[in-house]
Nucleic acid binder design. Sequence first.
DNA 1: TTGAAAGCGCTAACAA
DNA 2: TTGTTAGCGCTTTCAA
Lengths: 356, 356
Amino acid sequence: MSTDDPTSSAGIAATTPTEARRPLTLRDVSEASGVSEMTVSRVLRNRGDVSAATRERVLAAAKKLGYVPNKIAGALASSRVNLVAVILPSLSNMVFPEVIDGISNVLEDTELQPVLGVTHYRPEQEEKVLYEMLSWRPSGVIIAGLERSEASKAMLRNAGIPVVEIMDVDGEPIDSVVGISHRRAGRVMAQAIIEAGYKRIGFLGTKMPLDHRAKKRLDGFVDALEAAGMKLADEEYYEGGSGFGKGREMTKAILERSPDLDFLYYSNDLIGAGGMLYCMENGIDIPGRVGMAGFNNIELLDGLPRQLATMDSCRREIGEAAARIIAERAGSPALAGGEHVVLMPKVTMGDTLQRQ
Amino acid sequence: MSTDDPTSSAGIAATTPTEARRPLTLRDVSEASGVSEMTVSRVLRNRGDVSAATRERVLAAAKKLGYVPNKIAGALASSRVNLVAVILPSLSNMVFPEVIDGISNVLEDTELQPVLGVTHYRPEQEEKVLYEMLSWRPSGVIIAGLERSEASKAMLRNAGIPVVEIMDVDGEPIDSVVGISHRRAGRVMAQAIIEAGYKRIGFLGTKMPLDHRAKKRLDGFVDALEAAGMKLADEEYYEGGSGFGKGREMTKAILERSPDLDFLYYSNDLIGAGGMLYCMENGIDIPGRVGMAGFNNIELLDGLPRQLATMDSCRREIGEAAARIIAERAGSPALAGGEHVVLMPKVTMGDTLQRQ
DNA sequence: TTGAAAGCGCTAACAA
DNA sequence: TTGTTAGCGCTTTCAA
């Protein structure tokens, strides 16, 4: 916060919260300081040359009154809005909060501010949120995934602002894209599993048909199995939120149905952790009797009895890279778009993916 | 989404993303439909009487052009902004995402939209975020905690909009408040532990001096112990993010230092889970040799080898109640404020808080 | 270094 | 049912 920021120290008027007063305007500060509105505006924005004396007077008056500028009016007049729309499918699975952290970290050093919208993996909801956010004329959009309705695509193309699609790179981006290939993630994991000598592999994942990235991982996984003349030995799907309990139930179910499985590939670390706990409790040796792997590399889970094999989804890096692209282009709108950033995480073998 | 929403179906112009075009205005739609700007405005907002024929023409034109209204101008003209500022300390610990979910659930049925700001538990950051958000003149503020800088308090008081402070009720709210008493939470948990017959109780928690709620829980806990003529037998503090690994390390440390402890009170479920895993691996019987309890009632953890004793922090309910207060008052600004909603969660005994 | 005038894109209020 | 006028609070542009 700059030292000119009227909030930076105490002394703001502690007006009693009587009936809703008219919000203060530049004019009020102008009158209180005996300086034109224009000059007050200049002081408050650190723009143009203002004498030190005037500056002091204005700042004092603003702070005394407790003036908070009206960005709505400012944005309308300047047609500049320092907001970046961030549109994500969910906050509940520990992956997107980290993306947001990455974004905030980068934007904190700029004038830009992230504004969050959540779609719950529903295209109609995405359309609605997008429409809502674009109507505030943000300086850029960061949005998860590449699959969306035609209407959403059209809005993004027509918005005339930088758009960064994140998480996934398997598809046609509208403008810029930052992420990993989920097909590759599935493929590479399958290869590591095959190489370790596992033969009868089961998959446990979400039923959610709208989680395109989970689907792509599975597709890549199956492709790699087929390339090695193998196929999935069994599958188990769930609905609703991920958690240890889900992982347990599913693991129990699949192992009872297919006791000869020697590897379990989970669509995320959380259900993988549940499966690990189930196996350990039931004396099923990991990774000897069954190996297992998840996806995401959730830090919170460091400290499970075994370290789960996984692959990093590069959440923070993705957020940071996306924010950097927006920040650069917001600074000089002339810049061409279409940046493609493809991250290449490796398999973390952990303790659960190795033939003993 | 109403059927009048111009985004609701395909057919939006898929203009090629040439150089940044001038964003469309009401005037463009007015010209394209041969109807006055004012009437176009009325159609798009479903306000006032408009003939079905005109309505059709306008909607068709808007959709064909791909018009997205400019809320900035709308807000300035109407001095109504359908935004609710939601200011939270963090997204990384699984508690606040659920609060946000609760808020969104309720606001989805209204015109209001949540806008998120994150403070990382830093008062200066809170001040900055608050200033930034208030400068958009939102319809209300939902903000975590009761402790904040004088400047922040002054801004909230002077904003002239409903303010709901959430999570905690131990203190003086500015306007409305929704939460639980963290003092009571600590006290009630201590009483349950004492009643179960545990005598030598250790505390494991965050060092973070700015997490007032964690501090209050500990205070209440210690108070209840003292009332029973007891005191904390040992304490262990950590810094940085919570995770199983932290819980393990701390548990190891405190039990090696004080092997005679018979109960471990963790400041949250995540480190509690880590402690549980540590004890089970090291043949420390739970709850016979040591009992344990956490805080928050994190759903994800259902499926641990033992169900951890805990107390619900009512995250979703708090979000919902807060949003409801804002929604009501935004609807009829004349309504008085100062609602106090105090939730009273009970101890969940689980498997880790009972003398065998 | 400061000020005055015009207008950003929309909506409230009123008129037709 | 539709249109006209004025102006929301600020910034841009130009003049002093």
